[in-house]
């Protein structure tokens, strides 16, 4: 009996300390977000660095995003066709592809790709700068590292995630169209009509709002992980993994709540 109580006690203790460390981390991320917002509106503006990050986050992620979106659109058309055929609803394939891509898969897949590519790079770069004292060096050169390092990455995330999502939406729908018309033999004009008939501008628009949120989350989480790296090369590795895991989790979990809120 005593052993059982002891065990329950230990369990509660571990649960409590995990919850506390989660709350502490969340608090620190929010503080960093506040500091970033403050530096975002105060001049001088880091145009050169921001431009560099826009290239890094946006342009360099473009090929992966395009390939992922094209094949997602293609497989979506293929799967929904075989499924819908069972109850003679093949004509709806175009609609399903367009709605799934714009509302859900465009922003989420783009978010996950950027989290894996750019988020990891942000955490690794800032983490290395931290452990090699480059962030301290910025401070000694009277330069606020939040302004110099984090604000440009944050702006790049918030701007480029929706931009990439627009591309993903477009090529995803094209991918679905390609499979629908050339592989499955759907009528081209009917497919197009079905694609656009039920697609509303709010589907695309709300998808982009989600993308904006994902971009901000990836940037702030990855920068946080990198910025507060401790303990040499191992620490940089942990920060990078942590950034990708936490960003991806945040995307997937917040996606549900954002969708519930936006697509009422």
């Amino acid at each position: 009996m005593i052993r059982l109580i002891e065990l329950i006690g230990r369990f509660v203790e571990i649960l409590w300390s995990t919850l506390m460390s989660f709350a502490r981390e969340l608090g620190k991320i929010l503080l960093l977000l506040c500091a970033t917002m403050k530096q975002l509106i105060l001049p001088p503006f880091e145009l050169k660095n921001t431009f560099k990050q826009i290239i890094e986050v946006g342009i360099k992620s473009l090929p992966v995003v395009v390939i992922t979106a094209v094949f997602t659109g293609m497989v979506l058309a293929l799967q929904s066709y075989t499924g819908f055929k069972r109850f003679n609803a093949e004509v709806l394939v175009g609609t399903v592809v367009a709605l799934s891509i714009t509302r859900e898969l465009g922003p989420v897949l783009t978010g996950l790709i950027v989290a894996g590519r750019a988020g990891a790079a942000m955490a690794a770069e800032l983490g290395t700068m931290r452990v090699t004292e480059q962030i301290d060096a910025l401070e000694t050169l009277a330069t606020n590292p939040v302004k110099y390092l984090i604000v440009p990455r944050f702006i790049a995330g918030v701007i480029m995630l929706p931009s990439l999502t627009i591309v993903a939406d477009f090529v995803g729908i094209i991918g679905g169209y390609f499979v629908g018309v050339t592989v499955l033999g759907a009528n081209s004009s009917v497919y197009w009509k079905r694609t656009w008939d039920y697609l509303e501008i709010t589907d695309i628009y709300n998808g982009l709002i989600k993308a904006c949120f994902f971009g901000a989350s990836i940037a702030i989480i990855s920068c946080y992980k990198g910025f507060y790296t401790e303990g040499g090369a191992e620490g940089v590795g942990k920060a990078t993994t942590g950034a990708v895991v936490l960003s991806s989790m945040t995307i997937l979990i917040s996606d549900y709540f954002l969708s519930a809120w936006l697509f009422k």
């Binding site: 700068m129 090699t132 480059q134 000694t140 009277a142 606020n144």
Partner: peptide, 22 residues
Amino acid sequence: ENERYETRKRFGMLFQMAALFD
């Protein structure tokens, strides 16, 4: 914060591993 950064302009620091921006 601003005053602190202004004060830093009076300092120069050489780091142990140089801490150059790579």
